[in-house]
Amino acid sequence: MIRGTLYDGSRLHPRHVRDRQFATVGFGRRGLDPREVRRFLHRVALDLTVLHQDLALLGAENARVKRALRAWHSAGSERRQP
C-alpha cells in the first residue's frame, strides 16, 4: 500500500490511486467514511485505466498515420523522378 503523496514527478497510475492509504484522524468515527473514500478511489482508478488505454490506442493510431504519411510521401516522390 502507498502512504503519503507522490511528488516525484511520475505519472499517476491506477495502482497509485487504488493502493493509496489515508491516515486515521482522531478517536472514534471522526473524519471521512473509509468505505466512501475507497469507493471513490476505485472509481478514479477505473477512469485512469480507461484513460491510459485510450492514450495507448491513440499513440498506436498516431504511429500508424505517420507511417502511412511517410509511405504516401515516398511513393509520390518516386513517381516524380524522371
Rank of each mutant, 00 (worst) to 15 (best):
M1K: 06
G4P: 00
Y7M: 12
Y7E: 15
D8T: 05
S10P: 06
R11E: 12
R11W: 07
R11F: 07
R11M: 09
L12A: 04
L12Y: 00
H13R: 15
H16Y: 00
D19H: 06
D19E: 15
D19W: 05
R20I: 05
R20K: 15
R20N: 04
A23R: 12
T24L: 09
R29W: 05
R30F: 14
L32C: 10
L32S: 13
R35E: 11
R35W: 06
R35H: 10
E36P: 01
V37R: 05
R38S: 03
R38E: 08
R39F: 06
R39D: 13
L41Y: 05
H42F: 12
H42V: 05
R43K: 08
V44S: 04
A45P: 04
L46P: 03
D47I: 05
D47A: 09
V50G: 09
V50Y: 13
L51M: 01
H52F: 08
Q53F: 04
Q53H: 08
L58T: 01
G59H: 03
A60Y: 03
A60S: 07
A60I: 05
A63R: 04
K66C: 06
R70Y: 08
R70K: 11
A75P: 00
A75C: 02
R79Y: 07
R80F: 02
Q81N: 11
P82Y: 06
P82N: 10
P82I: 06
